[in-house]
Nucleic acid binder design. Sequence first.
RNA 1: CGGGGCGUGGCUCAGCUUGGUAGAGCACCUGGCUUGGGACCAGGGGGUCGCAGGUUCAAAUCCUGCCGCUCCGACCA
Length: 567
Amino acid sequence: MRVSRLYAPTLRETPAEAEIPSHQLMLRAGMIRKAAGGIYSYLPLALRILKKIEAIVREEMNEIDAQELLMPIIQPAEIWQETGRWDVYGDEMFRLCDRHKRNFCLGPTHEEMITTLVRGDVRSYRQLPLTLYQIQNKYRDEIRPRFGLMRGREFIMKDAYSFDRDEAGLTANYNKMYTAYTNVFTRCGLNFRPVEADSGAIGGSGSHEFMVIAESGEASIVYCPACDYGANVEKAELHTIVPQQEEMLPLDIIDTPKMKTIEAISAYLNIAPQKTIKAMAYQNENGLVIALVRGDHEVNEIKLINALGCIDLTLANEEAIAEAMQSAAGFIGPIGLQEVMIVADSTVMEMYNAVCGANLPDKHYIHVNPSRDFKPNKVIDIRLIQENDPCPHCGHPVKMARGIEVGQVFKLHTKYSQALQATYLDEKGKETPMVMGCYGIGVSRTMAAAIEQHNDEHGIIWPVPIAPYHTVIIPINSKDEAQMQLAETVCKALNQENVEAILDDRNERAGVKFKDADLIGYPLKIVIGPKTLQEQVFEVKVRRTGEVIFLSLENYVSEIQNLLKSL
RNA sequence: CGGGGCGUGGCUCAGCUUGGUAGAGCACCUGGCUUGGGACCAGGGGGUCGCAGGUUCAAAUCCUGCCGCUCCGACCA
Protein backbone atom coordinates (compact mmCIF):
# COMPACT_ATOMS: atom_id res chain seq x y z
CA MET A 1 0.00 0.00 0.00
CA ARG A 2 1.08 3.54 -0.75
CA VAL A 3 0.25 6.45 1.51
CA SER A 4 -0.38 8.64 -1.55
CA ARG A 5 -3.41 6.43 -2.30
CA LEU A 6 -4.48 5.77 1.30
CA TYR A 7 -7.80 7.26 2.35
CA ALA A 8 -6.70 8.59 5.72
CA PRO A 9 -7.32 12.32 5.77
CA THR A 10 -5.27 13.52 8.73
CA LEU A 11 -6.04 16.76 10.51
CA ARG A 12 -3.49 19.06 11.98
CA GLU A 13 -5.96 20.50 14.45
CA THR A 14 -8.27 18.78 16.87
CA PRO A 15 -11.96 19.04 16.05
CA ALA A 16 -13.77 20.88 18.83
CA GLU A 17 -16.30 18.12 19.48
CA ALA A 18 -13.73 15.59 20.67
CA GLU A 19 -13.02 15.42 24.37
CA ILE A 20 -10.87 12.39 25.11
CA PRO A 21 -7.64 11.19 23.48
CA SER A 22 -9.08 8.25 21.56
CA HIS A 23 -11.77 10.37 19.96
CA GLN A 24 -9.44 13.25 19.15
CA LEU A 25 -6.74 11.01 17.75
CA MET A 26 -9.01 8.84 15.65
CA LEU A 27 -10.49 11.94 14.05
CA ARG A 28 -7.08 13.50 13.52
CA ALA A 29 -5.55 10.29 12.18
CA GLY A 30 -8.30 10.01 9.58
CA MET A 31 -9.70 6.81 11.06
CA ILE A 32 -13.28 7.76 11.79
CA ARG A 33 -15.78 10.37 10.72
CA LYS A 34 -19.09 11.17 12.35
CA ALA A 35 -22.32 10.60 10.46
CA ALA A 36 -24.61 11.60 13.35
CA GLY A 37 -24.41 11.72 17.13
CA GLY A 38 -22.83 8.46 18.25
CA ILE A 39 -22.74 7.06 14.69
CA TYR A 40 -19.46 6.82 12.81
CA SER A 41 -17.92 5.65 9.57
CA TYR A 42 -14.80 3.56 9.97
CA LEU A 43 -12.20 4.60 7.41
CA PRO A 44 -9.66 2.10 6.02
CA LEU A 45 -7.11 2.34 8.84
CA ALA A 46 -9.77 1.90 11.53
CA LEU A 47 -11.26 -1.02 9.67
CA ARG A 48 -7.90 -2.78 9.54
CA ILE A 49 -7.60 -2.38 13.31
CA LEU A 50 -11.13 -3.66 13.87
CA LYS A 51 -10.41 -6.68 11.69
CA LYS A 52 -7.33 -7.45 13.74
CA ILE A 53 -9.24 -7.28 16.98
CA GLU A 54 -11.99 -9.40 15.46
CA ALA A 55 -9.45 -11.96 14.28
CA ILE A 56 -8.07 -12.30 17.81
CA VAL A 57 -11.59 -12.63 19.17
CA ARG A 58 -12.45 -15.30 16.59
CA GLU A 59 -9.35 -17.31 17.36
CA GLU A 60 -10.06 -17.30 21.07
CA MET A 61 -13.74 -18.10 20.58
CA ASN A 62 -13.05 -20.94 18.19
CA GLU A 63 -10.43 -22.23 20.60
CA ILE A 64 -13.16 -22.87 23.19
CA ASP A 65 -15.48 -24.43 20.60
CA ALA A 66 -17.78 -21.48 20.20
CA GLN A 67 -19.23 -21.38 16.69
CA GLU A 68 -19.70 -18.21 14.71
CA LEU A 69 -23.04 -17.34 13.16
CA LEU A 70 -24.71 -14.12 12.07
CA MET A 71 -28.12 -12.95 13.19
CA PRO A 72 -30.27 -10.12 11.87
CA ILE A 73 -29.93 -6.55 12.99
CA ILE A 74 -33.66 -6.03 12.46
CA GLN A 75 -35.65 -8.01 14.97
CA PRO A 76 -39.41 -8.52 15.21
CA ALA A 77 -41.23 -7.03 18.19
CA GLU A 78 -42.94 -10.33 19.05
CA ILE A 79 -39.91 -12.03 20.55
CA TRP A 80 -39.21 -8.99 22.69
CA GLN A 81 -42.82 -8.94 23.82
CA GLU A 82 -42.47 -12.58 24.87
CA THR A 83 -39.76 -11.70 27.39
CA GLY A 84 -41.38 -8.41 28.31
CA ARG A 85 -38.34 -6.44 27.29
CA TRP A 86 -40.20 -4.62 24.48
CA ASP A 87 -41.59 -2.41 27.26
CA VAL A 88 -38.70 -2.59 29.70
CA TYR A 89 -36.09 -1.40 27.22
CA GLY A 90 -37.86 1.92 26.76
CA ASP A 91 -36.42 4.81 24.80
CA GLU A 92 -33.05 3.20 24.49
CA MET A 93 -34.39 0.90 21.78
CA PHE A 94 -34.45 2.03 18.17
CA ARG A 95 -37.89 1.03 16.92
CA LEU A 96 -39.24 0.90 13.41
CA CYS A 97 -42.32 -0.11 11.51
CA ASP A 98 -42.63 -1.87 8.18
CA ARG A 99 -45.16 -1.02 5.46
CA HIS A 100 -47.70 -3.34 7.08
CA LYS A 101 -47.33 -1.48 10.34
CA ARG A 102 -45.57 -4.39 12.01
CA ASN A 103 -43.14 -3.42 14.74
CA PHE A 104 -39.43 -4.10 14.69
CA CYS A 105 -36.36 -2.89 16.48
CA LEU A 106 -32.71 -2.55 15.66
CA GLY A 107 -31.14 -5.15 17.92
CA PRO A 108 -29.59 -3.66 21.06
CA THR A 109 -28.58 -7.22 22.00
CA HIS A 110 -29.54 -10.69 20.81
CA GLU A 111 -30.72 -12.86 23.73
CA GLU A 112 -34.25 -13.07 22.34
CA MET A 113 -33.03 -13.76 18.82
CA ILE A 114 -30.60 -16.52 19.74
CA THR A 115 -32.95 -18.16 22.21
CA THR A 116 -35.82 -18.34 19.76
CA LEU A 117 -33.40 -19.63 17.15
CA VAL A 118 -32.05 -22.38 19.36
CA ARG A 119 -35.39 -23.42 20.82
CA GLY A 120 -36.58 -24.30 17.35
CA ASP A 121 -33.74 -26.68 16.64
CA VAL A 122 -32.32 -28.03 19.86
CA ARG A 123 -34.45 -30.81 21.35
CA SER A 124 -32.14 -33.21 23.12
CA TYR A 125 -29.54 -33.18 25.84
CA ARG A 126 -27.31 -34.79 23.23
CA GLN A 127 -27.13 -31.45 21.39
CA LEU A 128 -25.83 -29.65 24.47
CA PRO A 129 -23.62 -27.89 25.39
CA LEU A 130 -23.73 -25.39 22.57
CA THR A 131 -22.00 -22.03 22.32
CA LEU A 132 -22.69 -19.62 19.48
CA TYR A 133 -21.32 -16.18 18.79
CA GLN A 134 -21.44 -13.39 16.27
CA ILE A 135 -19.68 -10.14 15.56
CA GLN A 136 -22.41 -7.72 14.67
CA ASN A 137 -23.54 -4.12 14.90
CA LYS A 138 -25.64 -3.22 17.90
CA TYR A 139 -28.00 -0.30 18.26
CA ARG A 140 -28.80 1.59 21.41
CA ASP A 141 -30.33 5.02 21.42
CA GLU A 142 -28.18 6.22 24.28
CA ILE A 143 -29.44 9.20 26.22
CA ARG A 144 -26.10 10.78 25.78
CA PRO A 145 -23.71 9.37 23.22
CA ARG A 146 -20.23 10.69 23.87
CA PHE A 147 -16.53 10.15 23.61
CA GLY A 148 -16.61 9.01 19.99
CA LEU A 149 -16.57 5.23 19.75
CA MET A 150 -16.59 4.86 23.51
CA ARG A 151 -20.33 5.32 23.85
CA GLY A 152 -21.92 5.22 20.45
CA ARG A 153 -25.47 4.53 19.39
CA GLU A 154 -24.21 2.10 16.77
CA PHE A 155 -21.28 -0.06 17.76
CA ILE A 156 -19.65 -3.39 17.01
CA MET A 157 -19.98 -6.13 19.53
CA LYS A 158 -18.98 -9.72 19.76
CA ASP A 159 -21.78 -11.48 21.58
CA ALA A 160 -21.69 -15.12 22.56
CA TYR A 161 -24.38 -17.29 24.11
CA SER A 162 -23.94 -20.64 25.81
CA PHE A 163 -26.61 -23.30 26.27
CA ASP A 164 -26.10 -26.02 28.83
CA ARG A 165 -27.98 -28.86 30.44
CA ASP A 166 -27.34 -27.66 33.95
CA GLU A 167 -25.63 -25.21 36.26
CA ALA A 168 -22.41 -27.22 36.27
CA GLY A 169 -22.25 -26.96 32.50
CA LEU A 170 -22.91 -23.23 32.65
CA THR A 171 -20.16 -22.73 35.20
CA ALA A 172 -17.71 -24.65 33.03
CA ASN A 173 -18.62 -22.55 29.98
CA TYR A 174 -18.49 -19.35 32.00
CA ASN A 175 -15.00 -20.18 33.19
CA LYS A 176 -13.86 -20.99 29.67
CA MET A 177 -15.16 -17.65 28.46
CA TYR A 178 -13.50 -15.86 31.33
CA THR A 179 -10.19 -17.37 30.30
CA ALA A 180 -10.80 -16.61 26.62
CA TYR A 181 -11.57 -12.98 27.47
CA THR A 182 -8.41 -12.73 29.49
CA ASN A 183 -6.51 -14.03 26.46
CA VAL A 184 -8.23 -11.63 24.06
CA PHE A 185 -7.46 -8.50 26.04
CA THR A 186 -3.95 -9.63 26.86
CA ARG A 187 -3.28 -10.24 23.17
CA CYS A 188 -4.66 -6.79 22.34
CA GLY A 189 -1.97 -5.32 24.57
CA LEU A 190 -4.33 -3.88 27.14
CA ASN A 191 -3.83 -3.27 30.83
CA PHE A 192 -7.13 -4.58 32.15
CA ARG A 193 -8.70 -6.11 35.20
CA PRO A 194 -11.70 -8.41 35.52
CA VAL A 195 -14.03 -7.22 38.25
CA GLU A 196 -17.22 -8.48 39.85
CA ALA A 197 -20.23 -6.73 38.35
CA ASP A 198 -23.89 -6.12 38.83
CA SER A 199 -25.84 -8.00 36.19
CA GLY A 200 -28.16 -5.07 35.49
CA ALA A 201 -31.13 -5.01 33.14
CA ILE A 202 -29.98 -8.04 31.19
CA GLY A 203 -30.85 -10.18 34.18
CA GLY A 204 -29.34 -13.23 35.71
CA SER A 205 -26.74 -13.44 38.41
CA GLY A 206 -23.01 -13.95 38.44
CA SER A 207 -21.15 -11.53 36.27
CA HIS A 208 -17.71 -10.10 35.64
CA GLU A 209 -16.75 -7.02 33.72
CA PHE A 210 -13.40 -6.65 31.98
CA MET A 211 -12.17 -3.17 32.66
CA VAL A 212 -9.43 -1.39 30.80
CA ILE A 213 -7.81 0.91 33.31
CA ALA A 214 -7.97 4.48 32.00
CA GLU A 215 -8.68 7.90 33.42
CA SER A 216 -11.35 8.53 30.82
CA GLY A 217 -13.23 5.39 31.89
CA GLU A 218 -16.85 5.91 32.80
CA ALA A 219 -16.94 3.16 35.39
CA SER A 220 -15.51 3.26 38.88
CA ILE A 221 -13.92 0.12 40.18
CA VAL A 222 -12.33 -0.91 43.43
CA TYR A 223 -9.57 -3.42 43.76
CA CYS A 224 -7.53 -4.86 46.56
CA PRO A 225 -3.76 -4.51 46.41
CA ALA A 226 -3.37 -7.46 48.78
CA CYS A 227 -5.62 -10.10 47.21
CA ASP A 228 -7.18 -10.53 43.77
CA TYR A 229 -10.50 -8.94 44.66
CA GLY A 230 -11.86 -6.39 42.20
CA ALA A 231 -15.37 -5.08 41.65
CA ASN A 232 -17.41 -2.42 39.99
CA VAL A 233 -18.28 0.02 42.78
CA GLU A 234 -21.93 -0.64 42.00
CA LYS A 235 -21.40 -4.20 43.04
CA ALA A 236 -18.72 -4.02 45.74
CA GLU A 237 -20.05 -5.57 48.94
CA LEU A 238 -19.25 -4.19 52.34
CA HIS A 239 -19.22 -5.71 55.75
CA THR A 240 -21.07 -4.04 58.57
CA ILE A 241 -18.92 -1.76 60.67
CA VAL A 242 -19.43 -2.52 64.36
CA PRO A 243 -18.09 0.27 66.57
CA GLN A 244 -17.34 0.20 70.26
CA GLN A 245 -20.49 -0.18 72.29
CA GLU A 246 -21.68 2.90 74.17
CA GLU A 247 -24.24 3.52 76.84
CA MET A 248 -27.49 4.59 75.19
CA LEU A 249 -28.44 8.11 76.22
CA PRO A 250 -32.05 9.29 76.24
CA LEU A 251 -33.38 10.54 72.91
CA ASP A 252 -33.59 14.32 72.70
CA ILE A 253 -34.57 16.94 70.13
CA ILE A 254 -32.60 20.11 69.51
CA ASP A 255 -32.72 23.26 67.37
CA THR A 256 -30.46 23.16 64.33
CA PRO A 257 -31.36 26.27 62.32
CA LYS A 258 -30.60 25.91 58.60
CA MET A 259 -28.29 22.91 59.22
CA LYS A 260 -29.27 21.00 56.09
CA THR A 261 -26.11 19.06 55.31
CA ILE A 262 -24.09 16.48 57.18
CA GLU A 263 -21.13 18.82 56.95
CA ALA A 264 -23.06 21.70 58.51
CA ILE A 265 -24.65 19.67 61.27
CA SER A 266 -21.44 17.96 62.32
CA ALA A 267 -19.58 21.28 62.40
CA TYR A 268 -22.42 22.91 64.34
CA LEU A 269 -22.52 20.16 66.96
CA ASN A 270 -18.77 19.62 66.83
CA ILE A 271 -19.08 15.89 66.14
CA ALA A 272 -17.64 13.58 63.50
CA PRO A 273 -19.83 12.87 60.43
CA GLN A 274 -19.59 9.21 61.51
CA LYS A 275 -21.90 10.12 64.37
CA THR A 276 -24.69 11.29 62.06
CA ILE A 277 -27.25 9.41 60.01
CA LYS A 278 -27.85 10.52 56.45
CA ALA A 279 -31.43 10.06 55.23
CA MET A 280 -31.98 10.18 51.47
CA ALA A 281 -35.52 10.31 50.07
CA TYR A 282 -36.06 8.37 46.86
CA GLN A 283 -39.07 7.79 44.69
CA ASN A 284 -39.85 4.65 42.76
CA GLU A 285 -42.89 3.19 41.08
CA ASN A 286 -44.28 2.15 44.48
CA GLY A 287 -43.85 5.49 46.25
CA LEU A 288 -41.39 7.09 48.61
CA VAL A 289 -38.38 5.31 50.09
CA ILE A 290 -36.04 6.60 52.77
CA ALA A 291 -32.53 5.24 52.58
CA LEU A 292 -30.31 5.54 55.66
CA VAL A 293 -26.53 5.48 55.65
CA ARG A 294 -23.93 6.72 58.06
CA GLY A 295 -23.16 10.43 57.56
CA ASP A 296 -19.77 9.88 55.94
CA HIS A 297 -21.13 7.20 53.57
CA GLU A 298 -22.97 7.43 50.25
CA VAL A 299 -25.96 5.47 49.06
CA ASN A 300 -25.23 2.88 46.36
CA GLU A 301 -28.34 3.27 44.23
CA ILE A 302 -27.78 0.00 42.39
CA LYS A 303 -27.76 -1.90 45.65
CA LEU A 304 -30.83 0.01 46.75
CA ILE A 305 -32.66 -0.86 43.53
CA ASN A 306 -31.72 -4.50 43.96
CA ALA A 307 -32.81 -4.46 47.60
CA LEU A 308 -36.16 -2.96 46.66
CA GLY A 309 -36.64 -5.09 43.58
CA CYS A 310 -37.82 -2.03 41.68
CA ILE A 311 -37.06 -0.83 38.16
CA ASP A 312 -36.99 2.90 38.57
CA LEU A 313 -35.41 5.01 41.29
CA THR A 314 -34.84 8.74 41.49
CA LEU A 315 -34.23 11.23 44.26
CA ALA A 316 -37.56 12.54 45.55
CA ASN A 317 -38.41 16.16 44.90
CA GLU A 318 -39.25 18.73 47.56
CA GLU A 319 -43.01 18.47 47.11
CA ALA A 320 -43.06 14.73 47.58
CA ILE A 321 -40.97 15.03 50.73
CA ALA A 322 -43.16 17.78 52.13
CA GLU A 323 -46.33 15.85 51.37
CA ALA A 324 -45.28 12.49 52.76
CA MET A 325 -43.43 13.61 55.86
CA GLN A 326 -44.21 17.25 56.50
CA SER A 327 -40.48 17.74 56.28
CA ALA A 328 -37.87 19.16 54.00
CA ALA A 329 -34.67 17.71 52.57
CA GLY A 330 -32.01 18.24 55.20
CA PHE A 331 -34.24 17.42 58.14
CA ILE A 332 -35.54 14.02 57.14
CA GLY A 333 -35.24 11.22 59.65
CA PRO A 334 -36.60 7.76 60.28
CA ILE A 335 -38.08 8.33 63.72
CA GLY A 336 -41.86 8.36 63.90
CA LEU A 337 -42.32 7.91 60.16
CA GLN A 338 -45.51 6.13 59.16
CA GLU A 339 -46.29 4.49 55.84
CA VAL A 340 -42.95 5.30 54.30
CA MET A 341 -40.60 2.52 53.31
CA ILE A 342 -37.33 2.75 55.28
CA VAL A 343 -34.21 0.92 54.15
CA ALA A 344 -31.24 1.15 56.49
CA ASP A 345 -27.66 0.26 55.76
CA SER A 346 -26.56 -2.42 58.20
CA THR A 347 -23.84 -0.18 59.59
CA VAL A 348 -26.47 2.37 60.64
CA MET A 349 -28.12 -0.18 62.93
CA GLU A 350 -24.85 -0.55 64.86
CA MET A 351 -24.54 3.16 65.66
CA TYR A 352 -24.90 4.63 69.15
CA ASN A 353 -26.08 8.07 70.24
CA ALA A 354 -26.20 9.41 66.71
CA VAL A 355 -27.74 12.52 65.17
CA CYS A 356 -30.50 12.49 62.58
CA GLY A 357 -33.18 14.72 61.11
CA ALA A 358 -36.37 15.09 63.14
CA ASN A 359 -38.80 15.60 60.27
CA LEU A 360 -39.37 19.09 61.57
CA PRO A 361 -37.86 22.19 60.02
CA ASP A 362 -34.65 23.22 61.79
CA LYS A 363 -34.75 20.31 64.27
CA HIS A 364 -32.59 17.22 64.73
CA TYR A 365 -32.67 14.35 67.17
CA ILE A 366 -29.59 13.58 69.20
CA HIS A 367 -28.71 10.42 71.10
CA VAL A 368 -30.43 8.35 68.46
CA ASN A 369 -29.91 4.63 68.94
CA PRO A 370 -31.27 2.94 65.85
CA SER A 371 -31.85 -0.44 67.45
CA ARG A 372 -33.97 1.25 70.11
CA ASP A 373 -35.56 4.25 68.39
CA PHE A 374 -36.90 3.10 65.03
CA LYS A 375 -37.62 0.02 62.99
CA PRO A 376 -36.62 -0.01 59.33
CA ASN A 377 -38.54 -2.15 56.84
CA LYS A 378 -35.24 -3.51 55.61
CA VAL A 379 -31.69 -3.65 56.92
CA ILE A 380 -29.15 -4.47 54.25
CA ASP A 381 -25.86 -3.34 52.71
CA ILE A 382 -26.73 -0.27 50.60
CA ARG A 383 -23.63 1.85 50.92
CA LEU A 384 -21.18 2.78 48.23
CA ILE A 385 -17.67 1.52 48.76
CA GLN A 386 -15.00 4.19 49.26
CA GLU A 387 -11.25 4.26 48.93
CA ASN A 388 -9.60 2.56 51.92
CA ASP A 389 -12.74 0.68 52.93
CA PRO A 390 -11.77 -2.84 53.97
CA CYS A 391 -11.61 -5.42 51.19
CA PRO A 392 -14.58 -7.77 51.55
CA HIS A 393 -12.28 -10.74 51.01
CA CYS A 394 -9.21 -9.97 53.07
CA GLY A 395 -9.84 -6.72 54.92
CA HIS A 396 -6.92 -4.80 53.41
CA PRO A 397 -7.85 -1.20 52.45
CA VAL A 398 -9.10 -1.08 48.84
CA LYS A 399 -7.99 1.26 46.05
CA MET A 400 -10.18 2.89 43.43
CA ALA A 401 -9.64 3.33 39.70
CA ARG A 402 -11.49 4.33 36.56
CA GLY A 403 -12.19 1.69 33.96
CA ILE A 404 -13.53 1.27 30.45
CA GLU A 405 -15.81 -1.72 30.26
CA VAL A 406 -14.69 -3.66 27.20
CA GLY A 407 -16.29 -6.97 28.03
CA GLN A 408 -18.77 -8.58 30.33
CA VAL A 409 -19.69 -12.17 31.05
CA PHE A 410 -23.05 -13.14 32.58
CA LYS A 411 -24.67 -16.19 33.93
CA LEU A 412 -28.24 -15.90 32.70
CA HIS A 413 -29.36 -19.25 34.12
CA THR A 414 -32.87 -19.94 32.80
CA LYS A 415 -34.22 -16.40 32.67
CA TYR A 416 -34.59 -16.34 28.88
CA SER A 417 -35.01 -20.03 28.24
CA GLN A 418 -38.01 -20.05 30.57
CA ALA A 419 -39.56 -16.90 29.17
CA LEU A 420 -39.11 -18.17 25.62
CA GLN A 421 -39.62 -21.89 26.32
CA ALA A 422 -36.21 -22.97 25.12
CA THR A 423 -36.27 -26.48 26.54
CA TYR A 424 -34.67 -29.82 25.85
CA LEU A 425 -35.46 -33.39 26.83
CA ASP A 426 -33.01 -34.80 29.35
CA GLU A 427 -31.86 -38.42 29.68
CA LYS A 428 -35.10 -39.30 31.41
CA GLY A 429 -37.26 -37.65 28.79
CA LYS A 430 -38.10 -34.74 31.03
CA GLU A 431 -38.58 -31.31 29.49
CA THR A 432 -35.98 -28.95 31.02
CA PRO A 433 -35.09 -25.30 30.34
CA MET A 434 -31.62 -24.77 28.94
CA VAL A 435 -29.18 -23.04 31.24
CA MET A 436 -27.75 -20.02 29.48
CA GLY A 437 -24.84 -17.63 29.69
CA CYS A 438 -24.08 -14.58 27.60
CA TYR A 439 -20.76 -12.93 26.91
CA GLY A 440 -20.05 -9.60 25.22
CA ILE A 441 -16.99 -7.80 23.93
CA GLY A 442 -17.27 -4.24 22.70
CA VAL A 443 -15.06 -4.52 19.64
CA SER A 444 -15.21 -0.90 18.53
CA ARG A 445 -14.89 0.21 22.13
CA THR A 446 -11.83 -1.99 22.55
CA MET A 447 -10.18 -0.12 19.70
CA ALA A 448 -10.88 3.19 21.45
CA ALA A 449 -9.78 1.80 24.81
CA ALA A 450 -6.46 0.70 23.32
CA ILE A 451 -5.83 4.27 22.23
CA GLU A 452 -6.72 5.61 25.66
CA GLN A 453 -3.95 3.46 27.07
CA HIS A 454 -1.45 3.85 24.28
CA ASN A 455 -0.87 7.43 23.17
CA ASP A 456 1.44 10.37 23.72
CA GLU A 457 1.56 14.01 22.67
CA HIS A 458 2.39 12.99 19.09
CA GLY A 459 -0.44 10.54 18.56
CA ILE A 460 -1.37 6.90 18.85
CA ILE A 461 1.06 4.10 19.74
CA TRP A 462 -0.51 0.85 18.54
CA PRO A 463 0.31 -2.43 20.22
CA VAL A 464 1.76 -4.56 17.43
CA PRO A 465 -1.03 -7.19 17.33
CA ILE A 466 -3.71 -4.64 16.48
CA ALA A 467 -1.70 -2.02 14.60
CA PRO A 468 -3.14 -1.11 11.17
CA TYR A 469 0.31 -1.71 9.65
CA HIS A 470 3.45 -2.91 11.36
CA THR A 471 5.69 -0.33 9.81
CA VAL A 472 5.71 2.65 7.51
CA ILE A 473 8.60 3.16 5.12
CA ILE A 474 9.60 6.77 4.70
CA PRO A 475 11.87 7.86 1.89
CA ILE A 476 13.13 11.27 2.94
CA ASN A 477 12.93 12.62 -0.58
CA SER A 478 10.36 10.97 -2.80
CA LYS A 479 11.87 12.62 -5.85
CA ASP A 480 15.17 10.87 -5.28
CA GLU A 481 14.89 7.79 -7.46
CA ALA A 482 17.49 5.76 -5.62
CA GLN A 483 15.66 6.29 -2.32
CA MET A 484 12.31 5.44 -3.81
CA GLN A 485 13.60 2.36 -5.52
CA LEU A 486 15.14 1.02 -2.34
CA ALA A 487 11.99 1.90 -0.40
CA GLU A 488 9.88 -0.09 -2.82
CA THR A 489 12.19 -3.07 -2.67
CA VAL A 490 12.11 -3.05 1.11
CA CYS A 491 8.34 -2.66 1.20
CA LYS A 492 7.87 -5.63 -1.09
CA ALA A 493 10.33 -7.81 0.77
CA LEU A 494 8.69 -7.13 4.12
CA ASN A 495 5.16 -7.75 2.88
CA GLN A 496 6.24 -11.04 1.37
CA GLU A 497 7.32 -12.16 4.82
CA ASN A 498 4.07 -11.02 6.48
CA VAL A 499 5.43 -7.81 7.86
CA GLU A 500 2.70 -5.33 6.98
CA ALA A 501 4.48 -2.34 5.52
CA ILE A 502 3.08 0.79 3.94
CA LEU A 503 5.18 3.10 1.79
CA ASP A 504 4.89 6.85 2.27
CA ASP A 505 5.58 7.86 -1.31
CA ARG A 506 4.03 11.31 -1.02
CA ASN A 507 5.94 14.24 -2.36
CA GLU A 508 6.01 15.85 1.07
CA ARG A 509 8.78 17.09 3.26
CA ALA A 510 10.14 14.52 5.67
CA GLY A 511 8.64 16.35 8.66
CA VAL A 512 5.12 15.93 7.33
CA LYS A 513 5.61 12.20 6.88
CA PHE A 514 7.08 11.78 10.34
CA LYS A 515 4.24 13.70 11.95
CA ASP A 516 1.59 11.67 10.15
CA ALA A 517 3.35 8.42 10.99
CA ASP A 518 3.48 9.32 14.68
CA LEU A 519 -0.14 10.43 14.65
CA ILE A 520 -1.37 7.21 13.03
CA GLY A 521 0.83 5.25 15.38
CA TYR A 522 2.65 2.61 13.31
CA PRO A 523 4.85 0.66 15.75
CA LEU A 524 7.92 1.17 13.53
CA LYS A 525 9.17 3.73 11.02
CA ILE A 526 11.78 2.70 8.50
CA VAL A 527 13.62 5.77 7.25
CA ILE A 528 15.40 5.73 3.93
CA GLY A 529 17.54 8.76 3.28
CA PRO A 530 20.92 9.73 1.91
CA LYS A 531 22.67 8.04 4.82
CA THR A 532 20.96 4.77 4.06
CA LEU A 533 22.31 4.77 0.56
CA GLN A 534 25.78 5.86 1.54
CA GLU A 535 26.33 3.64 4.52
CA GLN A 536 24.10 0.76 3.53
CA VAL A 537 22.14 0.79 6.80
CA PHE A 538 18.51 1.34 7.64
CA GLU A 539 17.31 3.55 10.32
CA VAL A 540 14.37 2.06 12.23
CA LYS A 541 12.57 4.19 14.78
CA VAL A 542 10.47 2.58 17.47
CA ARG A 543 7.30 4.60 17.97
CA ARG A 544 6.83 3.79 21.63
CA THR A 545 10.33 4.54 22.88
CA GLY A 546 11.72 6.81 20.18
CA GLU A 547 14.66 4.43 20.07
CA VAL A 548 16.62 4.40 16.82
CA ILE A 549 18.02 1.11 15.58
CA PHE A 550 20.33 0.66 12.62
CA LEU A 551 19.98 -2.47 10.52
CA SER A 552 22.15 -3.64 7.71
CA LEU A 553 20.73 -4.10 4.25
CA GLU A 554 21.32 -7.82 4.66
CA ASN A 555 18.76 -9.95 6.51
CA TYR A 556 16.80 -6.91 7.68
CA VAL A 557 13.51 -8.76 7.27
CA SER A 558 14.16 -11.20 10.08
CA GLU A 559 15.62 -8.39 12.20
CA ILE A 560 12.42 -6.45 11.85
CA GLN A 561 10.33 -9.52 12.56
CA ASN A 562 12.27 -10.03 15.77
CA LEU A 563 11.97 -6.39 16.67
CA LEU A 564 8.19 -6.51 16.24
CA LYS A 565 7.98 -9.58 18.44
CA SER A 566 9.93 -7.85 21.17
CA LEU A 567 7.61 -4.82 21.36
C1' C B 1 -35.53 15.14 30.40
C1' G B 2 -33.17 19.47 33.44
C1' G B 3 -29.09 23.20 33.35
C1' G B 4 -24.90 25.80 30.57
C1' G B 5 -22.30 26.74 25.80
C1' C B 6 -22.00 26.76 20.52
C1' G B 7 -23.71 26.71 15.11
C1' U B 8 -19.68 31.81 9.94
C1' G B 9 -15.61 27.78 3.45
C1' G B 10 -13.16 20.86 4.61
C1' C B 11 -10.73 22.07 9.92
C1' U B 12 -9.67 25.81 14.06
C1' C B 13 -11.74 30.36 14.90
C1' A B 14 -12.46 36.15 14.50
C1' G B 15 -16.49 39.46 13.15
C1' C B 16 -22.18 40.03 16.49
C1' U B 17 -21.96 44.35 22.10
C1' U B 18 -22.84 49.54 18.61
C1' G B 19 -27.05 46.52 11.77
C1' G B 20 -24.23 49.22 6.27
C1' U B 21 -20.54 45.03 0.02
C1' A B 22 -18.14 38.19 4.81
C1' G B 23 -12.50 37.68 7.22
C1' A B 24 -7.73 35.08 9.13
C1' G B 25 -4.70 30.64 9.82
C1' C B 26 -4.59 25.65 8.25
C1' A B 27 -6.34 22.49 4.18
C1' C B 28 -7.28 22.51 -1.38
C1' C B 29 -5.86 23.90 -6.94
C1' U B 30 -1.77 26.13 -10.49
C1' G B 31 3.36 27.52 -11.10
C1' G B 32 8.14 28.13 -8.86
C1' C B 33 11.52 26.76 -5.22
C1' U B 34 12.54 23.16 -1.37
C1' U B 35 13.19 18.01 0.96
C1' G B 36 16.02 14.45 8.19
C1' G B 37 10.35 16.48 12.32
C1' G B 38 3.77 19.83 10.02
C1' A B 39 8.95 25.14 4.73
C1' C B 40 8.79 29.45 1.45
C1' C B 41 7.13 32.84 -2.84
C1' A B 42 3.34 34.16 -6.42
C1' G B 43 -1.47 33.34 -8.22
C1' G B 44 -6.39 30.93 -7.56
C1' G B 45 -11.14 28.30 -6.20
C1' G B 46 -14.58 27.66 -2.35
C1' G B 47 -19.29 30.31 2.49
C1' U B 48 -27.67 31.99 0.52
C1' C B 49 -23.09 33.06 8.12
C1' G B 50 -27.84 25.91 10.93
C1' C B 51 -33.36 26.44 9.25
C1' A B 52 -37.95 29.35 9.21
C1' G B 53 -40.43 33.66 10.35
C1' G B 54 -40.22 38.82 12.16
C1' U B 55 -38.17 44.10 12.93
C1' U B 56 -35.55 47.49 9.42
C1' C B 57 -34.27 51.36 3.66
C1' A B 58 -30.65 47.55 5.08
C1' A B 59 -29.64 41.53 9.32
C1' A B 60 -23.98 36.93 10.20
C1' U B 61 -25.17 40.98 13.78
C1' C B 62 -31.57 42.64 16.86
C1' C B 63 -36.40 39.54 18.15
C1' U B 64 -39.36 34.73 18.03
C1' G B 65 -39.73 29.61 16.97
C1' C B 66 -37.48 25.17 15.36
C1' C B 67 -33.23 21.92 14.24
C1' G B 68 -28.35 20.21 15.15
C1' C B 69 -23.86 19.76 17.97
C1' U B 70 -21.45 19.93 22.67
C1' C B 71 -20.50 20.02 28.15
C1' C B 72 -22.58 18.93 33.26
C1' G B 73 -26.45 15.93 35.75
C1' A B 74 -30.01 11.92 35.85
C1' C B 75 -29.59 7.02 32.81
C1' C B 76 -26.63 2.91 30.79
C1' A B 77 -25.20 -5.04 27.95
